[in-house]
Nucleic acid binder design. Sequence first.
DNA 1: CTCTTGACTGAGG
DNA 2: GCCTCAGCCAAGA
Length: 109
Amino acid sequence: MKPETLNFFDKVYAVAKLIPHGRVTSYGAIAKYLGAAKSARMVGYAMNGSGGKDVPAHRVVNRKGLLTGKHHFDGTNLMQQLLESEGIEVIDNQIQNLETVYWDPSKEL
DNA sequence: CTCTTGACTGAGG
DNA sequence: GCCTCAGCCAAGA
């Protein structure tokens, strides 16, 4: 195990846990905050290991506010249900009022 | 080591 | 606004 690589994953998990309720962010936003703006895909990849952890992966979507990662959850609409439970309106895997619920770690932190 | 895949993004048409 | 292409980095075969 290389601590350096694991560190990147840990950072992703850490930031994801910092996402407030009723808010969402994008993979690129997290990646940029970590100083790896070009590793947005790695953020999503890291989320594969979020299972079993306290990481609210359902609050992390792509830059369009589209629930691209919902296929990694159990049901077909579980991710959407979770977001709606937090007051986020989601229609057809697309977050509504994205600008209102969007949370940018680079700006909010 | 090389190739493929992937929960992404930005630029160009 | 949509679609397509290229770049990006890490893990697995």
